[in-house]
Each structure stands twice: as structure tokens, then as C-alpha cells.
Design a protein around this nucleic acid. Structure first.
Lengths: 191, 191
DNA sequence: ACCTGAACACCGTTCAAGT
DNA sequence: ACCTGAACACCGTTCAAGT
């Protein structure tokens, strides 16, 4: 494996184990068996390394979406699985999820990150489109609907992660909430 | 004004001017005309000071919601105004908005922050309830619906702030998107 | 081309005093 | 009670060398 990949993998481990604060370039270097500033030979700075992590994770997310879309299951089931993939990821890798969706500094315009994020979102859009084709979701512009659904998903996940989603009565988990929304959006048949 | 308030106000200014990275306890102390570690005499650490900022901002948000709810306008207009208040806040004070809704470390269970956040959300819930009473929104549990709407609002704001909401066709602004959702959720009259 | 080691400026935090 | 100043450990980043 190339050193660049090793550094990214080390950063991922540190993110999973200790959160973003644990990702010091010194720790990344040492975890890779290199000196404290070896990362600078591969990434311009800390932010660039974190962006590379997010970029790699978006590529993995795209792969997961592609696999789901290719499965021989109903469109609504595909949408469900796609939502679950994102939710599970946010639970198992909270720091990396935050880097992908809740970070402001990481988003350089026109960079590889933005491109990979677009590809992943494009796959999600395609799944939503399949649902619309079967009239399981309203007939509004495809991108708009997909954006709304993904935004809701992210908002629910963020609320849960930040403890803003108290188990106060009525506030269910992320998956039940987003599924309820989908149910509510389902067009009722004309009489 | 008490020193505690001065420190919070200084932190707010720094957040608005330079983002979260600009809020060093040293800068906060100096901006208040005190020494580099004076903040430690009022807050246990940096995180506690930031939590105090978020707590104060949630109180202000509650006040805004209360004023909107007391206005002599239609429920749907109240909901619209409440959404606009949050959106405007996220645009004018992005770092402070993030502290309120996109921060993981700030949320200590049972603390003043959680309490103020609950009060603010309670006001939002009440506005949603008024809309439900007039059958402008679906007849599902009030808290659940309010949670869904607020989560969607936050998700849209986060996407916009992180540049994930490309002006790619179909992805409109935050307000149009959330208004579209509300339209879609509006119960169609039974025939 | 890739890596190391020293060095710099800056920060959060602690602690012993000051008034 | 409230504040200051010195000090510590740690970090991102830069730079001059090493191989």
C-alpha cells in the first residue's frame, strides 16, 4: 500500500477511536511508522488530510449505493437500504460522518471531495427516481425530492448525535422518522 | 455588565468574526480587557464557555419564537416566520449556529444548554401544533412532526453551509425547499 | 524523491501568588 | 473573591539537512 493510503487509513483509525481531536498530524505520522511531519510530504496540511479521508469515504458510500441500486429488490426497499447504510455509518463512524456532512472547512470548491460527494449523491438521486417512477413518491423534480430526503436524513442524524433528540415522547429514532416522512409523502391515489 | 456576560459576548464576537478557531481563551480574555486566563475564573474550560454561548443563543431563539407565536397572524405564517428566523440566524452567525446544532461536544446531558434548547424547541412545537389544528399539516403526533420539520430545516441549512447543495438544477434554496415540503405534507381534502 | 530533527509560534490548562 | 504571570505539555507548520 502506498504511503498516502497508509496515512489516510491511520487518520481513519484515529477518528474512529478518539474523534477529530485525536487526529494530530504527529499521531498520524507515528501510527504509520514515520516521523511527526511525514504527513506534510503527502498532504499540504491537516485539513487536506481530513478532506482526503472524507473523499475516500464518499467513494465507499457511492459503492454501497451502487450495490443497492443493482440489487433485485423493489425501489422502496432500495431507498430503505440506502437510508440504513447512511444511518449505520453515522453510528459506527460518527467522527468520519461529521467530516463528510457537518464540516465547513473541508469543502473546497471544485476539489476531489466535492466531486466524490456529487457522485454519491447522484446514486441516491437515481434510487429516489426509481421510487418516483413507481409513484411511491411525489412527482416533483427528482433532484429536489432527493435533496429534501437526504437533508431530512442528515438533520435527524445530527439531532440524534447531538443529543437534541431527547427520547421525549413522539421523537422516535432516525429510521422510523424518515420512513414516516416517506409514508406521508406517498401520493394518495386519485379517486 | 457582569464579567461572565462580557466573556460570553467577547466569545460571540470572535465567533462571528473569525469562526470557532478564532475563539481562543486568550483572545477572549484580552477582548474583555483581562488576562489570558481570566476566563478560567468564570468557566471551567473552553468547552464550557462555548456551551454558555450556545445556551444564551437558544434563549434568544426562544424569545424570537415566543414573539412570533404571539403575533396576530395565521399559523402557517407563524411557521414560515419561525423558519426564516432560523435560516437568517444560520446565515448571519454561521459559527454560532453550528455551535447550537452541529456540535457534539457541547451537549452535556441535563445541563443548562439542553434545557434552553428544549424550551426553544417547545415553542417551535407549539407553532406546528397551531398549523395542525387548522389542518394545514398532517394529523400525526405533534412532537414527531415538529421534529421532522426541524430536522429537515437543519439538514438543508447544513448542506447549504457545507457547499453540498450545489446550484445543480433542482436544488433550490433552504426556504423554498422547506416550504415545498410543507406543501407536500398538507393534507388533501377528502372527497 | 522521500524522510528526519530542530525550531517557532500558539494554545489549553495548571499553579502559585498577588490585591 | 477575583485576577495575574510563569510554566508545562502539546500542536500545526516551516526549514535545513540527510539518504
Amino acid at each position: 500500500m502506498t504511503t498516502d493510503k497508509n496515512l489516510i487509513a491511520a487518520a481513519m483509525s484515529l477518528l474512529d477511536e478518539g474523534g477529530e481531536d485525536a487526529v494530530t498530524l504527529r499521531a498520524v505520522g507515528h501510527a504509520t511508522g514515520l516521523s511527526h511531519n511525514a504527513p506534510y510530504k503527502h498532504f499540504t496540511n491537516r485539513e487536506a488530510l481530513l478532506a482526503a479521508v472524507a473523499t475516500s469515504d464518499f467513494a465507499a458510500l457511492s459503492d454501497a449505493f451502487v450495490a443497492i441500486r443493482a440489487a433485485r429488490i423493489s425501489p422502496i426497499k432500495k431507498l430503505n437500504n440506502a437510508l440504513k447504510v447512511v444511518i449505520d455509518y453515522s453510528v459506527q463512524h460518527p467522527a468520519r460522518y461529521r467530516l463528510m456532512f457537518s464540516d465547513s472547512g473541508t469543502a473546497k470548491e471544485g476539489g476531489a471531495l466535492e466531486q466524490e460527494a456529487s457522485i454519491a449523491f447522484g446514486e441516491f438521486i437515481a434510487i429516489v427516481k426509481e421510487c418516483q417512477a413507481e409513484r411511491l413518491l411525489p412527482d416533483i423534480p427528482n433532484n429536489t425530492l432527493a435533496g429534501l430526503l437526504f437533508a431530512t436524513l442528515h438533520g435527524l442524524i445530527a439531532f440524534q448525535a447531538n443529543g437534541r433528540m431527547h427520547p421525549k415522547k413522539g421523537l422516535n429514532g432516525v429510521l422510523p422518522s424518515i420512513e414516516l416522512l416517506i409514508t406521508l409523502l406517498a401520493p394518495r391515489p386519485e379517486l
